[in-house]
Structures are given as C-alpha cells and as structure tokens.
Design a protein around this nucleic acid. Structure first.
Lengths: 141, 141
DNA sequence: AATCTTATTGCAACTGAGTTGCGTTTAGTG
DNA sequence: CACTAAACGCAACTCAGTTGCAATAAGATT
C-alpha cells in the first residue's frame, strides 16, 4: 500500500499493533529477502527447522494482509471462472472487476489497457490479464 | 482469441474438431448467454436437470480452453502467492509474469500501466492487478 | 517479579474445487 | 451396421486453505 514505509520487521508489526513473535519476524524476514511472491509452502520451507505450523503461517499472512503491508498476488478466489474468448483481443482479455463484498465478477469490455512491452530479453508473452478489485454499484451504495 | 469467429455452438465445436454432443452444446449455450465469467458450479446449475457430471464439465472446459475459444478468467493456479506491499503504488501492484512452463512468478517492478478509469457509476476501485502469462527466459530458449 | 489479558500457536479434523482411473456410452466415419 | 476414439459417469482421491479448541506466551498492569 505505502511506498516508503519502514521495512524493519519489528516496525511493521508494531505499527500494525501485532505482537513481535519470533515466528512472525521470521516470516517477514523471509518475505523481505524474497525476490518474488511466495506461497505458504515456500515460506515454510525457507523458514527451515524452526518453522511454524502451516495454520499459523496462514493466520499470520492473513493478519499482515489485513494490516495492509502484505499483498496476495494475483487473486483471492480459489474458484476458476470461465468465459468464451470472443470479445478478447489478441493476447489481451478485457479486464474484470471483482467485487470484494458480493463476490461477483464483472466484464469491462470497453476498458482495454495497452499491452506491456519492453520486457527483459527472453520473456514471451502469451496473454495479459487485468483484474480490478473493489465494490460494485450494488455494494458501494 | 479471435475477435470475429462464429458464435454458433456447433461451429465452435466443429472448427475445433470436437464432437457435437448435447452436453457440450448446452455448456456453450450457457456460456454464450452469460454476461460474465461463470464457475463450473454456476454452469452446472444453469444447465438444469439435464446437466452433466461435474468431471465431464471440467473436461469439456479444458478442451474448449485448449481449442482456444474459451478463457479461464483471471488465474490458473490454485495456490496463492504473498508478497510485501512496499514497491506497490496506491491501488496498483506491479505486474506479475507467470511462466506457464515452470510455474515461476516474476515481479515486473518497472512496468506499470495506468489505472483504468471512467468505470460506470458506482464502481469503487480498491486495487488493480496485472498478470502476464507466457514463457520466462529459462523456458523460452 | 508475579499476575493478567488476549494475541498467537499447534493439532486434528474438516472443506471443497479440481483431478485421476477406469469402465461404459455414443458421435460420427466407413 | 460395425468400428474407433471421443465423451461421459462414478468413486475415490488430492491438497491448499479453514475451523474449533485447548495450550502457550507477548507485553501491559500491578
């Protein structure tokens, strides 16, 4: 959320009114050292033998996410949604809007963004997807 | 994929060398009538009492996806990936690149797109996410 | 330092979307 | 009508993520 908040694990926790336990500090250290988003499983593995129970890790991540200094990359829902591919451009689907309250998924057929370009050598793009998250008209009233 | 291919269920199947069974035609009719991406469960419900087994629906959707005229909206992976929120802008995370071959998820910190605007009245955006899918340098060689 | 409150943790059992194996049915060709 | 491979149904499975509850331990208070 914030671009220049502190990156000290202790401060992150204190600012969010969370307790500075060894386990949570370890999780944060792992995430700070990571160069890409990690799954629960990867986090656990990188914590080594002094690792936490997976339930505890999930609950910590949930707390961090609520506090706003951790993001869940890509998507909330476990469920896949399917749609016909007409109305999609080459490599670009129309964006989708997911309502965080009612869970509905809307198509934004009229709101294309340009395709990202100038990626590093070697990346071959098959598809670009855009997802908006927020409140839909029914739920924002 | 294509913008102006036929929308006749029969043609979609024939062009893809798939058999025109009643079940698959029903799935396509449901998807054509839908105004948003649907989950397997929603598709099954909309097919009514002459519905298919859920495994069969999954396999049909998989075949449609392989043929290219159906998209899986938003995401492939069942697993969630977590990352700290620094280096994200207000409402916009940096894009991610998911390699379809090795499964790795890369952060594209230097490739922001503008925030989508001019949404219909009532939509409140909390966050915009961008995901690219394709082959990473390790896998495209 | 001892006590207290409540956040954090671990364990076991659960949930449910999606998958796999395998035997049966059926579309569509010959 | 026969044949072959695609499509289908069923039962059992996988496994990321969740829930309930009792045990532990921050850290504030006395």
């Amino acid at each position: 959320m914030t671009t220049k908040s502190s990156l000290q694990p202790e401060e992150l926790l204190q600012n969010a009114d969370l307790r500075c336990t060894r386990g949570r500090l370890d999780i944060l250290r792992v995430l700070l050292a990571a160069d890409r988003p990690l799954s629960q499983d990867e986090i656990a593995r990188r914590m080594g033998r002094n690792g936490l129970n997976k339930v505890t890790i999930y609950r910590a991540l949930e707390a961090f996410n609520r506090a706003g200094f951790l993001h869940i990359a890509q998507v909330q829902e476990r469920i896949r949604y399917y749609e016909l591919a007409h109305r999609c451009r080459q490599m670009r689907c129309h964006p989708h809007f997911a309502c965080v309250r009612c869970g509905r998924l809307y198509c934004l057929h009229d709101h294309y963004l340009p395709l990202i370009k100038d990626l590093d050598q070697g990346f071959v793009i098959h598809r670009q997807q855009i997802r908006l998250e927020g409140l839909c008209p029914d739920c924002s009233g």
